[in-house]
Design a protein around this nucleic acid. Sequence first.
DNA 1: TGCATTTTAGATTGCGCGCTCTAAAACCGA
DNA 2: TCGGTTTTAGAGCGCGCAATCTAAAATGCA
Lengths: 203, 203
Amino acid sequence: MARPREFDEEVALRAAVECFWERGYEATSVRDLATRMGITNASLYNAFGDKRSLYRRALDRYVELSFSDRVGRFQALPPREAIGAFFKEIVDRSVEDTGRRGCMLVNSALEIAPYDPEFQCVVTKVLVQVEAFFRQCAMIGQAEGTIARRQSAEDIGRLLLGVLLGLRVLARHRPERALLEGLVRPALALLDDATVGAPDPLV
Amino acid sequence: MARPREFDEEVALRAAVECFWERGYEATSVRDLATRMGITNASLYNAFGDKRSLYRRALDRYVELSFSDRVGRFQALPPREAIGAFFKEIVDRSVEDTGRRGCMLVNSALEIAPYDPEFQCVVTKVLVQVEAFFRQCAMIGQAEGTIARRQSAEDIGRLLLGVLLGLRVLARHRPERALLEGLVRPALALLDDATVGAPDPLV
DNA sequence: TGCATTTTAGATTGCGCGCTCTAAAACCGA
DNA sequence: TCGGTTTTAGAGCGCGCAATCTAAAATGCA
């Protein structure tokens, strides 16, 4: 019925993710985007609307490829292992991140979310999910007796979320393994306290 | 000998700090700055050079007024109290920060430092100082027996730096006291472990 | 084979940006 | 009072930006 697209929308979107991830929102021009996406200015606007809409879709795709995927994979593990593996993966990726791009969600959280309610909502929603993941791991682990009960599951969730964010900020400036692992180690130590009690009879 | 300035450079600089702190670097225009500083475009360039130079001076002033001042005040306290008071002050300010400006240094760390070696250096230098402050508190406290020895002073410094950064990111999105204190509480609990040994005989 | 429809391609638009320029104004030593 | 120097005031510069417009090209259905 009409002329078909010459480009793959998904491929183009992933290229947009790379652009925005590397340079942020403001510093990335629509020309840069079109070039990296391998399409023209007009095609970009035709397929994705304006720059802000494209950023929104790119961020959604990033979250889907990074956070959601990661949380999903680790929910299958025993809780203590899940938390450990989660942070190990983040540290490994941060040390390998030679472009120092950091985490696109955290970058968005500081660049545009403060001035844009829609993006604030997107960021908050993900952060709440991550916190819930940590909290649930803590709850199950505490019930099983594999995670210390010194702190409440709520506080453990909050601590791990905070450490995660701090880790991602720090990694962008000093991606040294000793530093990052030195940050994670004491946080995880709080889960392995010697005062772990007997398994909870219920649950 | 020549016409004197009609404005106070220090007052103007603090106005610039407010501007950049609220909106970041890119989103703040030189027109905005001149208006808020109460001077004209020409006076701004005459007194402060270009926009980037002004940002540099504003960031330096911010660090001087915030970090340096804070570290200085708390170094006088006993180490465990110093750390507690440090975080208490940050949490209190974050909850009161209705403009959600966060910390200008952390904002800079994510907006411009990744793409600008000079600012990267500035940010890193401050972060290293803060980490050193925490580490020294930990060392002294561990020697005195007022801070637990489960983790090395180095790791405690790293943890507290990471928690601080996470706190400042989180505070910008969810400035809820329960959340922020729930993040700080477990971190500080690591300092108060029951396994605190006897005071170190040496030192 | 035409016709309707969508995607291409490239030029173009209006706007806001950082920054500069030209004078006039304000000072002070001589 | 005058001359040298700096600061003011405000218009204006070139540039890059996001976004749009105009045609030409590419399809599938009739």
